[in-house]
Amino acid sequence: MTDIRQLSTYCGIAAPIMSVGAVTLATILAPPETFTWAERSLSSMGRYGAPTFPLFNGGLIASGLLGSPFVWRLWIASRNTVERVGIVLLAITVVGMIGVGVFFLDHNELYLDTSLHGLAALTVFGVAPFASWVYATGATLAKDALLAITSFWLGIVHLLGWLGWLVLPGGGFDTWLWFAVPEFVASVAFGGWVLILAVVTLRREEHGSSEPAAVDL
């Protein structure tokens, strides 16, 4: 019988599939006047009035809420303090993702005087790689080399995506062209990391294997 821990792990598998799937589908369905890879951010698909408004924002909110139980599952399975710090950063990223959907682009024209969209987006893209790196450090202390390496390099993917955007022809902060590309790369890297964490956790649950040795700091 599936217990609450396994159910929470399944949530960790479903959440990134939902978020990346919703964003990807939105890029396919969005008309050129509301989104193009070269000229718009991903958040343009969530602007009020855009045809993809419910799909983009709803997908982010639903996946964030769905992923929240998995954050709890990781916490109770954590092996040291450093891993727990990484999980806290993961939780902040998930809250930021929900915030991107709730505080969609130009939401201040409908409610609230101050736009919180930029802060929510910065929380996601700014905190996510550090969550990966800190968790990787904790996994290293727990002698879980494969998970540590995977977590570390998926965090690097975030950095490479943004650095690549800065050197793209026409890209960079002066024009904001191709901004959706590093956003999508970061989204896939974050979703992939969460998915890997969930799959590893599920396999350990199913096989009843013991966790690698903990090193509590």
Rank of each mutant, 00 (worst) to 15 (best):
W153E: 07
A136C: 08
A121W: 01
L159H: 11
W153M: 13
D144P: 12
L110N: 06
K143D: 13
G161R: 03
N108E: 12
A136Y: 02
F130Y: 13
W153D: 06
K143L: 14
L159M: 13
A145L: 15
E109V: 11
W133I: 13
G126S: 07
V124E: 02
H107M: 02
L112Y: 09
K143F: 13
A145G: 10
D113A: 13
V167Q: 03
S115V: 01
A136N: 05
F130H: 05
P129Y: 09
T150Y: 12
S132C: 15
G170Y: 04
W162I: 12
G170F: 09
A139I: 08
A120T: 13
W153V: 14
L116I: 01
V157C: 07
F152N: 11
G155K: 10
A148Q: 08
T150A: 15
W153P: 04
H158D: 10
F130W: 14
H158Q: 10
L154I: 11
W153F: 15
T123R: 00
W165V: 06
P169W: 06
G164F: 04
N108F: 07
T140W: 14
L160V: 14
H107C: 02
T137R: 06
L163S: 09
A120L: 02
L147C: 08
H117T: 02
L159W: 12
V157K: 04
W153L: 15
G161M: 05
S132N: 14
A121N: 03
W162T: 10
E109P: 00
S151N: 12
A145F: 12
G170D: 05
H158K: 10
L146M: 13
S151D: 08
G118I: 09
W162C: 10
L160E: 09
F103W: 05
K143Q: 14
V157D: 03
T123P: 00
T123D: 02
L119Y: 05
P169F: 08
K143Y: 12
L147T: 15
A136F: 05
G170A: 08
L154Y: 10
A142H: 04
G126W: 01
H117S: 05
H117G: 04
L119N: 03
D106T: 09
A139Q: 11
L160K: 01
D106P: 00
G118T: 12
F152M: 15
G161H: 05
H158M: 11
I149E: 09
A131V: 06
D106N: 10
L146G: 09
V157Q: 05
A120M: 14
T140C: 08
K143G: 12
H158T: 08
L119P: 00
A136T: 05
D113N: 11
T137A: 15
T123E: 01
A120S: 14
F125R: 03
S151F: 14
T140K: 14
A139C: 14
T150V: 15
L105C: 00
L163T: 11
L110S: 06
V134P: 10
A148C: 13
A148I: 12
S132R: 02
L112K: 00
L163Y: 06
H107N: 03
I149G: 09
D113P: 04
T114L: 09
